[in-house]
Design a protein around this nucleic acid. Sequence first.
DNA 1: GAAATCTGTTTCCGGTGGACACGAATTAGA
DNA 2: TCTAATTCGTGTCCACCGGAAACAGATTTC
Lengths: 234, 234
Amino acid sequence: MPAPTALELLWGTQQRARRGPKPALSLDRIVGEAIALADAEGLANLSMQRLAERLGFTKMSLYRYVPGKAELTALMLDAAIGTPPPPTPGWRAGLQIWANTIFARYSAHPWTIDLTTGQRPVGPNELGWMETALTALDGTGLTGSERLDTIVLLNGHVRSLVEQLAPPNTSDDVYATQLAETMSAVGHLYPAATAAFAEESANGHPGNALQFGIDRILDGLAVLIDRRGLASPA
Amino acid sequence: MPAPTALELLWGTQQRARRGPKPALSLDRIVGEAIALADAEGLANLSMQRLAERLGFTKMSLYRYVPGKAELTALMLDAAIGTPPPPTPGWRAGLQIWANTIFARYSAHPWTIDLTTGQRPVGPNELGWMETALTALDGTGLTGSERLDTIVLLNGHVRSLVEQLAPPNTSDDVYATQLAETMSAVGHLYPAATAAFAEESANGHPGNALQFGIDRILDGLAVLIDRRGLASPA
DNA sequence: GAAATCTGTTTCCGGTGGACACGAATTAGA
DNA sequence: TCTAATTCGTGTCCACCGGAAACAGATTTC
């Protein structure tokens, strides 16, 4: 039996073997527990050993279902992001919902950000999200490249925000305190930063960076679409 | 001797000890070689062991200079991104140069992306880049929060592109081939994606996603600034 | 039944970050 | 000048990591 590749596992083109004992585990159970473990303790604390203990099996038994940890995390990613929301009329409303929904998905499993870096095999759900966003851009007159670049832009903004947000379990303001001390010590060398931080903390600004970025991106996209003059502005 | 914190190391508030043998190594040499090693073989292949071998010392000797690997990578980050470019008149031109320059810095050391994740101590160079971008937004009428959100947006776009770009040393198109095979197999389920990919590969589009995103962001920002009516459009 | 095959386990390996104790080198204070 | 304090680099040790290989028991096909 050749080891299944990540693509085969992602797209589910495998059938049960014929001889030998029936498997006591399943790929779904393994991936599900792995997601739960990563949610609870972070991707850094997800090891084959700890995952196996959680499942009540030995570490090496997992390798009967998954050729390696890389393939496991690929499956975790596609399962965690889930299926995209249904399409919405209007490119602006569609992308707005798309960005907010995928932000919620990423935020529910922050470790997904670490797994969506670089070149990698693409799973059905990840492709589904791309399909949904591209569909939202139908009728805007943008080229295929521009649509792809738009998704990269929007997705990159959402991802970078999830990445910077601290999970509220740990002490989330130890670095805020550090930054405040640093600014009070050497802030005179950074007047613009000092002013911006002061102004931000004066108003009780609770962090609408996500919506701010989405609005700027969609405003800029509207400028381009209007310039093409092929679509009605949203 | 209490171990120096990452902040103390970053901001250089340490003095030579008085007794004992003179150090044969230096923090600068260690950080410099660590950067060279990460550039050559990636952050995943940077271990204290291999770094020490490169320096001709034992692994544990490094811990006399750095309390742990986390502090080392923090120093590597601030050293690798370097100092920001001088300010440029005009918010749009300033941000344009800022984004392109920091993209070049990130690209020269792609591992920096992995280190600029989550809450962490901030070094002088990182704060300098923020200061430069905030200064570029002087006179635009934006609030402090808006300026900070703008930088997050612009920086996030640049970072996400560096993150997705494959370093050209490895086989960069093995996953492109995989994607092509996947699309030919199940592409009928993703018509918009199929069309976009086909249109992109038809035109020899060599990837101007960076400039596309910057233009959209700055266009959207111009809309906001004009709405404020306090600054002359660039 | 016998042979083939799949299961989960055991054992083992090189590599990782780091704690700790040690002898050698250096310098401050008497 | 001599001694005590302190810092240096090293050697040893540990838990943990991802994974290879061989193995015994269960199951199915012939």
